[in-house]
């Protein structure tokens, strides 16, 4: 039960951060990727701000056997760079640039964005389901 409350808290803080940082505004995101045009460095500050507390959290996690609710912590990162990783990142980046939305902000904007955001979310969900079906073969 505590884990569910903590999950909702993490999700709420994540959503507030995405909104305040501008990540839920596709025009802002496209400005960050528009390096040959009217470049907007704001998202660089978002990335740096997000990495900082998480780097501290990984240091704390490294000294513990389990999380504070007693669950196993993630195993060390897989070092293998394979074709799926690179191809997937290429496809994701293209979609991110075209619509200015990635999965977190796509969910965070569902409650206020209206039709364009709902269309993006449903298409993204369809892509995930299609990949799941293809991957299961």
């Amino acid at each position: 039960m505590m884990r569910l409350i903590f999950a909702a808290m993490s999700g709420a803080l994540f959503g507030a951060g995405l909104l305040i940082s501008g990540m839920t505004d596709p025009a802002r995101v496209q400005g960050w990727l528009d390096i040959f045009g009217d470049w907007d460095p704001t998202l660089g500050f978002v990335m740096a701000g997000a990495i900082l507390p998480m780097a501290v959290a990984w240091r704390i996690a490294a000294r513990r056997a389990v999380s504070f609710t007693g669950r196993a912590l993630p195993t060390p990162p897989n070092p293998v760079i394979d074709r799926n990783l690179v191809t997937g990142a290429v496809l994701f980046g293209l979609g991110w640039g075209i619509a200015g939305l990635c999965p977190g902000p796509a969910m965070a904007s569902l409650g206020f964005g209206g039709l364009p955001f709902a269309v993006f979310f449903l298409s993204m969900a369809a892509g995930m389901i299609l990949f799941g079906l293809w991957n299961r073969r």
Binding site: L94, G95, A99, A106, V119, F120, M124, G127, F131
Partner: peptide, 10 residues
């Protein structure tokens, strides 16, 4: 774009 993000991230 949604399809690309959904398939690419998975």
């Amino acid at each position: 774009a949604g399809l690309l993000v959904g398939i690419g991230t998975r």
